[in-house]
């Protein structure tokens, strides 16, 4: 019973955290993108435009929630939640400090890698249920891409798991040693690239590709449902950044305690900034190039990385 309560409490917290992170993330992205594009970004609403996203959210909530006539109505309405929930769930296993994660489980790493994959279903559903050719194409692209990029991402994370000898994220954090930064650097790069592909962000945002597919799988969504899709995007950025910082960059290292949590957050923001930077600099890839990158570049690198780590471990 207390487990259920704790679960509900966490769900509420995670939802709020993602909402706040999305608010901050959108603002941060607009600011960074603005600087990259010789603009200021939002600056009117609130100090430094901080409240701009809030204003946008209010607008989105007030907007009419349209369900297209040709849509499969039930699937159409449920798709945003199918996309959002797994991403929110994946936040549960992130080790914020040594020995503490909201959900401390022995298969945490696996959980983090496996659960967000369920989002693929939501993207596919959203794309198909819209009854719109663009959305269908976007959904198909998204599914193909996310399923493929699971492989290098998992392999990359596996190298840290092999070093730490555990799938429990909190233990993994505790066993971090500084030379892992060097040993798993290639893995970190692969993790970062495939995470960007996993969360459908530029340069891998083929599923939404606003210049080709208009907005891809969420082309027909409006108002709050569209906002949920957007929140999912920032939720996955948040999750990937936090998890990357916790596993590859040693979490709070070199600090402990509360300072460690701050260090983790700073590292996560840095990774987020990198993700934004990449998105606003690079053109989008084509579907076939994306697949080629996945299977001929990232997967071999991840495998070699795993091989090196595997060769090192027996000598420790």
């Amino acid at each position: 019973m207390s487990g259920l309560l704790w679960g509900m409490l966490f769900g509420l917290l995670a939802g709020t955290a993602i909402a706040l992170a999305a608010l901050f993330g959108v603002w941060w992205e607009r600011k960074v993108a603005g600087r990259i594009q010789m603009r200021f970004g939002p600056q009117e609403a609130g100090p430094a435009g901080l409240l701009q996203t809030l204003a946008d959210t209010i607008k989105l909530v007030l907007k009419e929630d349209i369900t297209p006539r040709l849509a499969d109505k039930r699937l159409f309405r449920v798709a945003p939640l199918v996309v959002f929930t797994p991403v929110a769930m994946s936040l549960a296993v992130i080790p914020f400090a040594k020995g503490w994660a909201p959900l401390d489980t022995s298969v945490g790493v696996l959980f983090f890698l496996a659960v967000p994959s369920i989002s693929v279903l939501g993207i596919l559903l959203g794309g198909w249920a819209s009854g719109n050719s663009y959305a269908t194409l976007g959904g198909m692209r998204g599914a193909a891409q996310m399923v493929s990029y699971e492989v290098p991402r998992t392999l990359a994370v596996l190298s840290v798991v092999v070093l730490a000898g555990t799938l429990r994220p909190t233990l993994l954090l505790g066993r971090f040693q500084w030379w892992w930064l060097i040993a798993t650097f290639a893995g970190f790069v692969v993790y970062l690239i495939s995470s960007i592909a996993e969360m459908n962000r530029g340069p891998f945002d083929l599923a939404e590709a606003e210049s080709e597919l208009v907005a891809g799988y969420f082309a027909d969504y409006s108002g709050i449902r569209w906002a949920v899709f957007m929140m999912t995007e920032y939720g996955s950025v948040l999750a990937a950044s936090l998890f990357g910082a916790a596993t590859f960059l040693g979490g709070g290292w070199p600090f402990g305690g509360l300072l460690g949590v701050v260090a983790l957050l700073v590292k996560a923001v840095l990774i987020t900034t990198l993700i934004i930077w990449v998105k606003w600099t690079l053109p989008r890839m084509r579907a076939d190039q994306l697949m080629r990158l996945c299977w001929t570049v990232l997967t071999p690198i991840a495998l070699v990385q795993l091989l090196i780590v595997g060769a090192v471990v027996p000598w420790l």
């Binding site: 993108a33 590709a209 210049s211 080709e212 053109p283 989008r284």
Partner: peptide, 16 residues
């Protein structure tokens, strides 16, 4: 061309 390929920053630079 930049915007079509998803590089929106290119669009802004060209428009500058």
């Amino acid at each position: 061309t930049g915007a079509d390929t998803g590089a929106f920053t290119m669009f802004v630079y060209a428009f500058d």
